[in-house]
Design a protein around this nucleic acid. Structure first.
Lengths: 341, 341
DNA sequence: TTGTAGGCGTTATCAC
DNA sequence: GTGATAACGCCTACAA
């Protein structure tokens, strides 16, 4: 008798089973644990799968087994010059083990992040990846209650419960000051990110402030009002250099700001680093092509994706926990010295 | 009696229904069509949802309704300077309607693409998005057999069955030649992409060849052997300019190649566009910051994502088909004239 | 407006 | 090694 409801119209395990003359559970085993199915049946099932063009329905499988092969990730943005590398390496590593990536962007909004997390939890992903340690209370609650592995990336705050894979943003600020101070600069300014909600960027600023204080120097933070990074950089240069006692060195919160500031200054007749040292963050693709090429700090974007994926695969039992080379979750940024500072 | 199997341990519609004193289908309706549930029950259900911290299970919902709110996309790469914008705008547009993005990258390999398509079809996505018109036979077969809307992006070949949202790559090659020819250049060379598998890039080359022929000029294609784009660009410049009759203008398959070529030439003492006009493709972020800034063609990356999402939402009945402004699926590239040509 | 019955496609459990 | 049965959590179909 024909059922009352119509499915997708595709072949199911039952169809395959009937054609192969076995029970459906055997077909299921054929896919999950082929070695416990006898060669004869394996051959018959294989043929039936081919004939019927059978594709396993992952939604049904996930429902029945309560664990699907989807991993969800919320990231501030996909198209930015930084996070894309993390997404790419993360996705590549996971797909190697048959996991698919469910992706959403938050644009540094904890409300958007929360919405994405809610939606994702509804898919019962095998794991959930967030960015940074800053979330809404509700997100924290949902995550604490969730049973799958949770990983926070792009930050490192060991005191927190979720697994962290990232680096210390405060350390980045400190490192920049250390380098510039070592080259003899005293009046070192910091240009903050104009992107509201990027709280990790403020950690970098705080690292800068602490480091300056430790050298007995006065912190000097400029906060641009322009949203466009290139405009903001320009604004910063105008404010910090066109004055009686101009900055000797400027640390920009990212390479976009630095590039904008540098080009604005050059148009106004300045030369870098002669008139002022320029220091960025991010090591964007263009940074080595600027004139002068940009001294900056490279965050371990790709490595974060790889290690996060590895930790998840370990937590899921896909790969052994005692890998020969034990990566640490606290990753290093790389100081890239070029011409601008 | 306690069930023999344990689920996720989360509250289900049944739990909510019991607590609210209604049937589970009413809870289901509360989420899908709240307006057909009486205010009294709505209030009771709402309270129960809060108390139990209920989250709908999308896998179960998708299975039951045979249409989940997932859209799958296969794209050559996530972290490249081009496709990220398409992914971003596509994802943003979809998430506005409650659809989530399942993503995989193919690295221009039709085998990897096929693997991703197989995996994705197992999730019965609401729609499937591919890149370009070039796929394996098996992919073509799977796609032809699938019942959900299929969209091909980044290409436009109306003769094909799947919905196309993109632009004509051949036209890009033609447009570059037209521009350079209009400026009086005759010996116009073309530097091919060193990325194997990027067949659309070859369409751009073919457009170049056809356009050259139409002007009575000899096509001159250089194929780099270096994989790294900056190295490949360098190789091209050395080959095309260090000779008796050097190229007067070079069209590079992308901005990376163009930048690499230009920097190599400058290091060898050349000046652009004085010694040779440089023309790129892609309008990468750095292109306007080069010295000289790069004349290039901007592909409608963001627009492709938006229009693809719109077409899918229309096909799914989420938005009306007769939008006030009817976007066309054949999108325009933008010629961006800067200093290098 | 609300409820009952049963199926969506797969897998856990237990029996042979 | 293989199979029967029921359950995963939700929603369609139909009835009231």
């Amino acid at each position: 008798m024909s059922g009352k409801r119509k499915g997708l119209g595709r072949a199911t395990v039952h169809d395959v089973a009937k054609l192969a003359g076995v029970s459906s559970i055997t077909v299921s085993r054929y896919f999950k644990q082929p070695d416990i199915v006898s060669p004869v049946l394996r051959e018959r099932i294989s043929e039936a799968v081919r004939v019927l063009d059978y594709l396993p329905n992952h939604a049904a499988g996930g429902l029945a087994s309560t664990r699907g092969r989807i991993v969800a990730m919320v990231i501030p943005n996909i198209s930015g010059p930084i996070f894309a590398n993390t997404i790419q390496s993360f996705s590549d590593e996971l797909s190697r083990y048959g996991y698919q990536l469910l992706l959403a962007s938050s644009y540094f909004s904890i409300e958007q992040e929360e919405r994405a997390v809610r939606a994702f939890l509804g898919w019962s992903p095998a794991a959930l990846v967030l960015t940074s340690q800053y979330h809404s209370e509700e997100t924290e609650r949902l995550v604490a209650k969730a049973t799958m592995p949770i990983v926070e990336t792009w930050d490192y705050e060991p005191a927190r419960k979720p697994l962290q894979v990232g680096f210390s943003h405060g350390e980045v600020g400190r490192q920049a000051v250390e380098y510039l101070h070592g080259k003899g600069y005293q009046r070192i300014a910091f240009v903050q990110n104009s992107m509201v909600g990027d709280l990790s960027a403020l950690d970098r600023r705080d690292g800068y402030i602490a480091a300056m204080a430790s050298y007995g120097l006065n912190p000097w933070v400029f906060v641009p009002t322009q949203a466009d990074p290139f405009e903001a950089g320009k604004q910063a240069v105008n404010s910090l250099l066109l004055r009686k006692e101009p900055a000797e060195a400027i640390i920009f919160a990212n390479d976009n700001l630095a590039a904008g500031g540098m080009l604005a200054g050059q148009r106004a007749g300045m030369q870098f680093p002669r008139d002022c040292a320029i220091f960025g963050f991010g090591n964007y693709a263009f940074s080595e092509m600027l004139l002068p090429s940009l001294t900056t700090i490279r965050p371990p974007a790709k490595e974060i994706g790889e290690v996060a994926a590895m930790r998840i695969l370990q937590a899921l039992g896909e790969i052994p926990t005692d890998e020969p080379v034990q990566h640490l979750n606290l990753l290093e940024c790389e100081l890239i010295v070029r011409e601008s500072a």
